[in-house]
Computed example of a mutant assay.
Amino acid sequence: MLALERVARGIEPLTARLRPGHPIPEPEGERTVRVERVEHPAEGVAQLTLVPARPGETLPAWQPGQHVDVVLGGGVLRQYSLTGDPSDRSAYRIAVRRIPDGVGSGLVHGLREGDTIGLRGPRNAFPFTRAERYLFVAGGIGITPILPMVLSAHRAAVPARTVYTGRSRATMPFADLLPGEVSVRPDDECGPPDPAAIVEGLTPGTAVYVCGPSPLIEAVRARTPEGTPFFSERFAPAPVVDGEPFEVQLGEDGPVVPIPADESALEVMRRVRPATAYSCRQGFCGTCRLTLLSGEADHRDRPTGGSPRGEEFAPCVSRAAGGERLVLDV
Score class of each variant (00 low, 15 high):
E57V: 15
G121S: 12
C288K: 13
L328M: 09
Q63G: 03
A153R: 04
L72C: 05
G180V: 04
G322L: 11
G140R: 09
G251H: 02
G74N: 08
P25A: 07
G205I: 15
G21N: 05
Q66P: 01
V158E: 05
D115G: 04
R325C: 06
G21D: 04
E181G: 03
P193N: 07
V184Q: 06
E189W: 15
V208C: 03
V220P: 00
L107W: 08
E244Q: 08
G283W: 11
R89T: 10
Q63E: 13
R325I: 10
M1Y: 14
R89V: 08
I217R: 09
R37I: 12
G191Q: 10
E233F: 07
P127H: 09
E247V: 09
T165A: 01
P41Q: 09
F231I: 07
L326E: 01
P255K: 09
G306A: 14
R221K: 14
E296Y: 06
V199T: 07
Y164P: 01
G121N: 08
R130Y: 01
R289W: 14
I94S: 00
A95K: 08
E296L: 08
H22E: 06
F128G: 00
E181A: 13
E30K: 10
G212H: 08
G191Y: 12
P127W: 13
G243W: 15
G295D: 03
L290I: 14
V35Q: 01
T116S: 04
R302K: 12
G73S: 11
A157G: 02
F230T: 00
T83P: 01
E252A: 09
R221L: 11
Q47S: 08
R19K: 14
L111K: 02
L111C: 02
T32C: 04
V208R: 01
L119S: 02
P159N: 11
E113P: 06
D188W: 13
L135A: 09
L48S: 04
D194L: 07
P215C: 14
P23E: 10
D298I: 11
E5D: 13
R93D: 02
E26A: 10
A207D: 10
I24D: 01
P308Q: 15
E181T: 15
L107S: 03
L18M: 15
A153V: 09
G166K: 06
A222F: 12
R31G: 04
V70S: 03
F128N: 00
E312N: 12
P52F: 15
P145R: 07
A153L: 06
V45H: 01
T276V: 11
P20C: 14
L107A: 07
L151F: 00
L202W: 13
L292W: 10
P159M: 14
Y164D: 02
V51H: 03
E233Y: 06
R223Q: 15
D262F: 15
I99L: 04
V45L: 03
V33G: 01
A320R: 05
C211K: 02
V268D: 04
E218Q: 12
T291N: 04
L135G: 06
T32L: 10
A53L: 09
S152D: 03
A46S: 07
P55S: 11
V268G: 02
V317A: 01
L48H: 05
R54H: 05
T224P: 04
H22Y: 04
G29M: 10
I143N: 05
P23S: 09
G21Q: 08
T165G: 00
L202Q: 10
T203R: 15
